[in-house]
Nucleic acid binder design. Structure first.
Ligand SMILES: [Zn+2]
Ligand SMILES: [Zn+2]
Ligand SMILES: [Zn+2]
Ligand SMILES: [Zn+2]
Lengths: 140, 140
DNA sequence: ATAAGACTGAGAACCGTTGTCAACTTGGTC
DNA sequence: GACCAAGTTGACAACGGTTCTCAGTCTTAT
């Protein structure tokens, strides 16, 4: 039976207040900074649980680490993420959904799953980039 | 200046003979099995070099590890990979390419990059799966 | 209040990957 | 061919994110 604990609440609520995708470690740091410390192992466990319950989305950053985000919609969707500041836009991929199953079918594959993520520079970071390409960090 | 060594040749040639995506460690094992041993660090270095030279494709498996494959075409493309046996089909994604830049533009994002991979069960593995869903391994 | 068992957290373990550095090639030069 | 500068190798250590362990703690049903 699932129990309600201070730790789970802290993880869940804090995650809800962060609009960008964050790694388990970043969230752990944030919790600590807020004086709401939770063990790192618990942060990992809780995020996994939230993810497999479909309450949060998981994304694998280019360096391989996992990042989590509480998205507005629970239905399947994709993300457009700013590489410099992390700003994230939720995208529904009707076009890609159709494309994916079409491609799968045409090759006789079944049980198709797809990974589709978009990365770029958001409007603000694009402006900075145009002004001086060197200063635009590639944070994620 | 880049030099030609026994090790680089072994890695490059062996990779060319393996039709599936393989991890650095799998390739290292294969080389050892073929009596053509190459140090693990060298396998990693060589694969990185081949990848950044655009000679091989890199894919991140669901467990996070990197896998490499010498694809037939050097132009940008995507993959449809069998989760059970690794069979891989190269896909060109004209539809997704267009979709990705359209979505990026419509949100004012620039320098869009995309990650698009399809996973499923190939025709043979689909047949096994239909016969007995329990026996179909989920190797990758 | 009590007890069963779910949960926590410090630290160890894990595992893919990268760094280190002395010894070993390779390839151009004489 | 001999020589040398510098690219390359590989055993091993180190790294970083994630998972495991397990004794102690807390939640919840009764
Ligand atoms: Zn989302
Ligand atoms: Zn989708
Ligand atoms: Zn390819
Ligand atoms: Zn593409």
């Amino acid at each position: 039976m699932q129990r309600m604990t201070r730790q789970r609440l802290a993880v869940s609520e804090t995650l809800a207040e962060i609009p960008e995708f964050v790694s388990a470690q970043q969230l752990h740091d944030e919790l600590t900074a807020r004086g709401d410390a939770v063990g790192l192992a618990t942060v990992y466990r809780t995020l996994q649980a939230l993810a497999s319950a479909g309450e949060v989305d998981v994304l694998r950053l280019s360096d391989g680490e996992l990042a989590y985000r509480r998205c507005a919609r629970r239905e399947h969707h994709h993300h457009l993420v700013c590489r410099a500041c992390g700003t994230t836009v939720e995208i529904d991929g009707l076009t890609v959904e159709a494309w994916a199953s079409l491609v799968g079918d045409s090759h006789g594959f079944t049980r198709i799953e797809h990974t589709v993520e978009l990365f770029g520079l958001c409007p603000e970071c694009s402006a900075e980039d145009a002004a001086d390409p060197e200063t635009v960090g590639e944070a994620r």
